[in-house]
Structures are given as structure tokens and as C-alpha cells.
Computed example of a mutant assay.
Amino acid sequence: MKTITFGGNPVTLVNEQVNEGDKAPDFNAIDNSLKPVKLSDFKGKVKLISVFPSIDTSVCSVQNHKFNDAASSYGDKVAFIAISNDLPFALKRFCGAEGINNLVTLSDHRDVEFGTNYGFLIKELRLLARGVVIIDKDDVVRYVEYVPEITQEPNYDAALNALKELV
């Protein structure tokens, strides 16, 4: 298991981290209208999952803007999913105010299934660590980044290059 820090302090991630080549675990989350959404709802599509702790921080805002901009060039070929433990109302407010319209924003706050199944849940904070997971059309994990220091941005170039190879 990789060491993850938040502000330089080590944190504990619940469960095992996913690895490239793993079958992507399904999970339940809720969208901005409180509707349940599962990974399997995106069956047959390539999926880029952008994982972040809280929409109300500057780094998370940048991350969502970067992937929203990237998503515009893929049309419906790729499902760009942004997930955190923020309440759906906060995600909806942010997306509306910031013009984020190419991402499916999901809240993992209720059941924390994504965080637990993918090893992103921070035990001490009940927030998700920062990272990116890319899953192919056959639901196999093809790219994973657990950002070592949660206050830093993910490697956008590496993630988007990995995505290009699948589309």
C-alpha cells in the first residue's frame, strides 16, 4: 500500500488500493439530484474517474476544471466521472456556478462504497484521497494514480495520455 499524506501527515486509507489489470469493482453513489448511480450504469464505455476530497478547495476546483475541459473533446466516447464525499447539493452548486457541464459528479458520502472498494477512503477524515482511475470498456482498470500528497494535483498529462490509448 502506498503512503498517502495530507499536509505532510500520513493518513490511513481504508481497504486495498486497486491496481492496473484489476476488474473494476462496482459501487453505488448518488448524483446531484439524489438519484443512485452505479459504475455499471456506464457499461461499455471507457470511464475516467477523478477522485477528490472536497469541491470547496482550490486544488479540487482546478482538478474538476481540467477534466471538464478535457472531457469536451471526447463527446460521449468517455464517461468523465468526478467523485467525492461532498454532499450532492454542494457538487450541484459548484458545477452550476463554475460551468462544469461535461462531468458526471457523484457523491460517495452516503455509503462510501467507491472509497472503500477502490481504497481511496481516508479513515481519519471520512474524505476521499485524491487520484484518478481509468477503466476500459470491459471494466478493467487500466490506469491508477493515488496522489501521494493530497494537497497536490494529479498528473493530468499521464492520465489523459493513458485515456487516449483506450479511445
Rank of each mutant, 00 (worst) to 15 (best):
E98H: 09
T116I: 11
S61H: 13
K47V: 15
A70V: 08
L91I: 00
S40L: 11
S54Q: 14
L48K: 11
C95L: 00
P53V: 06
K123S: 10
N15V: 09
N101R: 04
K77I: 07
P25Y: 13
L39G: 00
A97E: 15
K38C: 08
V18N: 04
G99D: 04
T57I: 04
L125T: 15
N28W: 12
D108M: 01
K23D: 12
G115I: 10
Q63L: 13
P10A: 12
P25A: 12
D86G: 01
D69K: 09
D76K: 12
L39F: 08
K35E: 12
Q17L: 06
T116K: 11
N19I: 10
G115C: 07
V62C: 12
E124N: 01
L125V: 12
V62M: 15
A24K: 02
F27I: 08
D26F: 07
D22N: 14
K47W: 07
D111K: 15
L34R: 13
T12R: 01
N19V: 12
I55R: 09
G21P: 01
F94I: 00
Q17A: 12
F52N: 05
V112P: 03
T57M: 11
V14E: 07
G115L: 08
I81A: 05
L34N: 14
P10Q: 13
P53L: 10
A79F: 03
K92Q: 11
R110C: 07
T57P: 14
V11Q: 02
L103P: 12
D26S: 03
N64T: 09
D108R: 01
N64Q: 14
S107A: 04
N85F: 06
